[in-house]
Nucleic acid binder design. Structure first.
Ligand SMILES: [Mn+2]
Ligand SMILES: [Mn+2]
Ligand SMILES: [Mn+2]
Ligand SMILES: [Mn+2]
Lengths: 221, 221
DNA sequence: AACGTAATTTAGACATGTCTAGAATCGAGC
DNA sequence: GCTCGATTCTAGACATGTCTAAATTACGTT
């Protein structure tokens, strides 16, 4: 249960491990180091403390996993982050490329009560501005694995449901192309050998490379 | 000028010194220690760093003063604190006894841009929910010295303009009595020898002691 | 099976912010 | 002017979180 108050650093490590291990099941030391922009040795030091506090399990040289408690802490932080992002856009006129850094700091200072009030004030959204689902106040979350724009076959249509959210410049570019959650897109052409894709959104068509297409998630139209 | 980013601790020390030295001109080590709930030795240690950074001047054994730069940092923090309090009440349904602790943490995480958006969203209020004036974005603030309810002579009327804001229980009690900024009050009786005061607010009268009366600030009606 | 590179951990250092214990200083009252 | 109690400062310790440099481990390639 634990109403223990963890430091901002501890929370950020747990969130990083949560996000990195979501797909693969476990996270590596240097992945965490890269994500948090710290030295690998700093991660090793922190992991020792996280293990002592029962938040992480660690098989030396083979990766990190969250314990039940660590996962609960991470999910509460993810909820605070995503509600904050949604609130900043819906209530205070932020654009979706401006919210991440602000939320990254506020998430450690906002009480659960404030987060719940913010969520209520904007109608309890299910997803944040980038399409990421928002865990409930009780820590329930289902995060579906979507296909990406790069997975579409020529002629196929789909709806954008989520985009990667860490890079503001990418978000501004995507907005300029109208590649945003809710938009319906069609794959008109795929050049061979990992070549560019021709995508129609609305009345416009855009040619984008596979690396960009891999950062845009889609679902049935 | 300095866009240096100071730690939350440094900001809190500067705010404490600002508030404690506002009237008397300087602040003592143990006053600061009491306000921040730390040991006096911790204040001595922090003061050494604040002096090194040019934020505080210190005459050993005789008190602390903010430098121009220290004062500017403190005023920006005071602005963030008071705008946050006002926003939580005006936009999110907080009561005035719930906002202080939340603002005390958020003030260190909220960007000036967020604070400006919040202030604009609620109509650029001049004062926070407790009647404390809000510094401008450029750090201008005039904080008048008001008389207190305990200074009123029998028969005199005045308007409540501000109350002390650190104690939530006090704030709930004041709200139950309708002793809130904007209320017009009259001093009906003063018992001699520091005795209780009989105060009328609206159609009700209340009898309060001088210590409480000293925590309620009034101005011409 | 041995090698070599990359990932990881350990060792040692440092900055920040806090504490307790004890020394130094101030200032009020005699 | 001296003394004593309160205030303030210093010394030394500790927790947290970070770093660089060096040792260790894992594992794909030869
Ligand atoms: Mn964060
Ligand atoms: Mn997001
Ligand atoms: Mn604070
Ligand atoms: Mn206030």
């Amino acid at each position: 249960m634990s109403t223990a108050a963890y430091t901002a650093s501890v929370e950020d490590y747990l969130k990083a491990i949560y996000e990195l291990s979501r797909d693969s099941g476990s996270a590596g030391t240097s992945e965490v180091a890269a994500r948090l922009a710290v030295a690998p040795a700093s991660v090793s030091a922190m992991v020792r403390r996280l293990v002592e506090h029962g938040l992480v399990s660690h098989e030396p040289y083979h990766g990190l996993r969250l314990t039940k408690e660590g996962r609960a802490v991470a999910l509460q932080l993810v909820r605070r982050h995503r509600v904050l992002e949604a609130y900043l856009v819906a209530a205070l006129g932020y654009t979706w490329d401006q919210v991440h850094d602000e939320a990254e700091r506020l998430e450690h200072a906002a009480s659960p009560a404030l987060i719940n009030r913010m969520a209520a004030a904007i109608g309890e959204p299910a997803v944040d501005p980038h399409g990421a689902p928002i865990p409930t106040a009780h820590g329930k979350l289902e995060e579906p694995k979507y296909r990406t724009l790069g997975d579409l076959t020529a002629g196929e249509s789909a709806q954008i449901v989520r985009v990667e959210d860490k890079d503001p410049e990418l978000l501004r570019y995507l907005a300029s192309l109208r590649f945003m959650p809710g938009a319906t897109v069609s794959c008109l052409r795929r050049e061979p050998y990992e070549g560019p894709l021709t995508i129609r959104v609305g009345s416009k068509t855009h040619v984008i490379g596979p690396p960009l297409a891999a950062r845009i998630f889609v679902d049935e139209a």
